[in-house]
Write a protein that binds this DNA or RNA. Structure first.
Length: 826
DNA sequence: AGCACGCCGACT
DNA sequence: GTCGGCGTGCTC
């Protein structure tokens, strides 16, 4: 009796922004191997090949189309754990995006396959007897292909045209070329060439014989002696298997040619050895630091709340030694055989904290950072799966790593806005971390000196536990904060450029004492705009509705939204006036002024422009650490994680601008930024000083900053949020409508707001024009939907929104608009 | 998101 | 006539 072969189908999650699964047929020979959560390669569309993840396996052929065959299975075992899929699915629903978009963010690109379409000459093609007519372009391409196989992009480059598809199709139809797909695994293990003795020579007699015969060839002899020195096979024949790196042999006067000869003669053999990209941490791990009494108390309190399965907020002032508490908790988690994840904002990761953790956790610690290459990320991924890594310090995307037994999640600088991703899936790593903890039944700790209003609300109202460390480590006093009134200084003529006399005096005094100074100006470039003195003309971006920022070091005008670059005009384009003024203050201008006022001081600038290169950031930090830099000027970057003993003065320049940003979170953000940067001042026994230049010295936020009263500030904000129905009293979904045509954009937004207005129990704000109303030639309109916090079925509202969207996109006139849903916008 | 198709105006 | 622009629809 012949056995019936079952036909299997699988529903595949693909990394594309289409909210559904795609069904493929499983070739019969894979029937025994196919597994849920394996990676698979599938054809997609006419010429694409994608890596997807199998989500379901079944036997139901699709009704209304013929399923394509999947091409291959990539992993003998699943690549994702069910917990990861759970997180992905939750995220897609919660943040209103396609699961494929989440998958795209979740898989390191080294695990996604690249497929490249290649063009090859048909070997059967006869140049002398082509059989068809070819255009000149076609001929030149055919000749080019005589010797090389080209990718599509190569062909486009070679011909100098964008669209090559029809040309290639024509060539293919005339049997002159072949089109093929090359699929390759992107991840490549790092290989290092090694050498060792061929097997037959690992015998004493044979080796002695060899040396006798080679005595007349000094170069070869030298090579062999060197190899022997590194691989003493006389004494330890078994060591030969390990081989030694080739680059250890070819040093100084050892001849590579002689080595090659020996390899050719099969005396030595050469082979590739896969080596990890991360240097094994060889030093003996240090013992974790001993906690102070206060820290021990805090750690115990946290563990108590963990017992109650509550997330915990660790509220400790800057410099209170949160890191030691983290280390203690991580150690405990690892000791109980669970994995630990420490999330840090992007730039905090490059600083001292990682080094400290590495010293303590050694090879059990993985670091996951955006500056790592694809290959390095895959190695972290695999290290976790293999159980080598027990703890990861990483940026927001590390929540997607393949943990199967997560016991502890710590989100440091919990309030940091960079935890929210500003492209799909627009997730917030702190909130996703809370969900991840739920999925793993893990404990989660949120740490901050300036907690977000939301977190603080939950922590003080009992939803979360709260542990406070109110004093600085080693009893360093909190810095003294002083406000410098700019308007008054102007009146008294005690101002020089952007500096009030008081600021200059403070800096002078600090420099005299050989102390370092940090100046904070949250705006890069030289000046945010330039203006013609005669007619008031301000150069604007041609794609966006913003003024162009003048960058002196590039001597050009730059759009910070789309990257548009323009030359600095020599005269006003509008009235030909020659007097173009640089208006406003950026880090470059501040740097220039500082150099004028303090010509002998070492000055460094730290912003996006000076840290873009891989070494930029660490160079700046290093020279500051070594005391080569006296004055460090920077944007947000200087507010985070820099611990330097010799900084006692911090100057803040644009507090006003942050304060008056039109957003319900602006006070919160200003308070956080100023408090954080203040925390850089005075980390030892000496009291640090913070000088803030402002036009509004009476602003209430400054009162809280000066008193270092985080709790009072947050309570004040909570009241404010309650009065205005903002989070945590409501949930927000921001809807952005985009279109190149202003009228269409406005009309669609109006229609949309009209619809959302009819959703029960919610409030709609807008449509309103955002501060930058046009970006990359698309007009923007924002609608803000406020949903009561305790609204039961948030998902039903989201479903409703998606329905409204599809209704809008069905309208002939408005279908081309783009709609972006941003759940819990920043 | 890509990518191809198809329709349109602008040129050799 | 072809090239290349952009709007539209589809991807198992």
């Amino acid at each position: 009796m012949t056995q019936e072969i079952t036909t299997l189908f699988c529903n595949v999650l693909l990394p594309v922004p289409i909210p559904k699964l795609f069904t493929y047929r499983v070739p019969a020979e894979f029937n025994d191997h196919v597994q849920v959560l394996q990676r698979t390669i599938v054809p997609f569309g006419p010429k694409k090949v994608l890596t997807g993840v199998i989500q379901e396996i079944h036997q139901n052929p699709p009704q209304d189309y013929e399923a394509k065959m999947l091409l291959d299975l990539l992993d003998p075992i699943p690549i994702l754990f069910p917990h990861q899929l759970e997180l992905i699915t939750w995220m897609a629903n919660y943040y209103m995006c396609a699961a494929g978009e989440v998958l795209n963010a979740a898989l390191p690109s080294g695990l996604k396959l690249s497929s490249e379409s290649l063009v090859q000459i048909n070997p059967a093609f006869d140049f002398d007897n082509p059989g068809y007519d070819f255009s000149e372009k076609e001929w030149s391409l055919l000749h080019r292909l005589k010797h090389d196989t080209l990718s599509y992009t190569d062909v486009a480059k070679f011909l100098g045209v964008k669209h090559i598809y029809s040309l290639l199709k024509s060539l293919a139809s005339k049997n002159s070329i072949l089109l093929l797909e090359e699929v390759k695994e992107k991840y490549q293990p790092k290989k290092i060439k090694h050498v060792r003795f061929a097997k037959e020579y690992v015998v004493k007699k044979k080796l002695e014989e060899l040396f006798r015969s080679i005595a007349s060839k000094p170069k070869q002899e030298a090579v062999l002696l060197k190899v022997l020195q590194e691989l003493p096979v006389f004494q330890h024949p078994e060591w030969n298997d390990k081989g030694i790196p080739k680059n250890k042999i070819v040093v100084q006067d050892i001849s590579e040619a002689a080595l090659r000869t020996l390899i050719k003669q099969k005396v030595l053999e050469e082979y590739d050895l896969n080596v990890p990209r991360f240097h094994e941490y060889e030093a003996q791990p240090e013992a974790p630091p001993i906690l102070s009494e206060i820290q021990t108390q805090a750690s115990n309190n946290i563990l108590e709340f963990f017992q109650q399965d509550k997330p915990v907020l660790l509220h400790g002032v800057t410099g209170s030694g949160k890191t030691e508490i983290y280390i203690d908790l991580i150690k405990k988690a690892i000791d109980s055989n669970a994995q630990a994840l420490l999330l840090l904002p992007e730039i905090a990761l490059t600083t001292q904290i990682v080094g400290r953790l590495k010293k303590i956790f050694g090879n059990q610690l993985g670091v996951y950072h955006s500056r790592f290459s694809d290959n390095e990320r895959v190695e972290i991924w695999n290290g976790i799966v293999e159980g080598k890594l027990k703890c990861v310090v990483g940026v927001r995307s590390s929540i997607f790593l393949p943990f199967d037994n997560l016991g502890l999640i710590i989100v440091d600088e919990e309030h940091d806005t960079s935890y929210k991703q500003d492209r799909p899936p627009r997730y917030h790593a702190r909130n996703a971390g809370l969900m991840l903890a739920k999925i793993h039944h893990a404990k989660i700790l949120l740490g901050s000196a300036t907690p977000s209003v939301e977190t603080y609300f939950h922590a003080t109202r009992g939803t979360y536990g709260m542990v406070t460390v109110p004093t600085r480590f080693a009893e360093a006093p909190m810095p003294q904060v002083k406000l410098l009134n700019i308007a008054e200084a102007r009146k008294n003529k005690s101002i020089r450029g952007s500096f009030t006399a008081a600021m200059i005096n403070g800096m002078e005094a600090a420099l005299k004492k050989k102390e370092q100074v940090i100046l904070f100006q949250n705006r890069r470039g030289y000046s945010p705009f330039i203006e013609c003195e005669d007619c008031g003309y301000v150069p604007k971006c041609i794609n966006c509705s913003v003024s162009l920022t003048y960058h002196q070091f590039k001597h050009s005008l730059l759009c910070h939204y789309c990257g548009y670059v323009d030359e600095l005009p020599k005269a006003c384009p509008s009235c030909s006036g020659k007097k173009l003024l640089t208006m406003g203050l950026g880090t470059e201008k501040l740097e220039e002024e500082v150099k004028l006022i303090f010509p002998d001081a070492g000055v460094q600038r730290m912003d996006l422009d000076t840290t873009r290169s891989k070494a930029g950031y660490s160079n700046i930090i290093e020279s500051f650490e070594q005391g080569k830099t006296d004055i460090l000027i920077g944007t947000q970057m200087v507010t985070k994680g820099l611990d330097f003993d010799r900084v006692n003065l911090v100057g803040v320049f644009d507090a006003d601008r942050i304060l008056h940003f039109p957003d319900f979170r602006s006070y919160e953000r200003a308070f956080q930024l100023i408090t954080q940067v203040s925390g850089r001042a005075g980390r030892r026994k000496v009291q640090g000083q913070v000088l803030i230049q402002t036009h509004n010295p009476n602003h209430p936020v400054f009162g809280f900053v000066m008193a270092h009263d985080v709790a009072a500030f947050l309570e004040n904000q909570i009241k404010d949020r309650e009065n205005n129905f903002y989070p945590p009293f409501s949930r927000l979904i921001q809807i952005t409508v985009k279109h190149a045509d202003k009228k269409i954009c406005f009309e669609a937004a109006k229609w949309m707001a009209n619809q959302t207005n009819q959703i029960q129990n919610t409030r709609t704000l807008g449509p309103a024009e955002p501060a930058v109303s046009k970006i990359r030639n698309e007009f923007l309109q924002n609608i803000l939907l406020k949903i009561p916090r305790n609204y039961g079925q948030l998902s039903s509202i989201k479903a409703e929104l998606l329905k409204i969207e599809s209704k809008l996109l069905a309208d002939a006139g408005l279908r081309a608009v783009k709609i972006i849903f941003d759940v819990d916008p920043n």
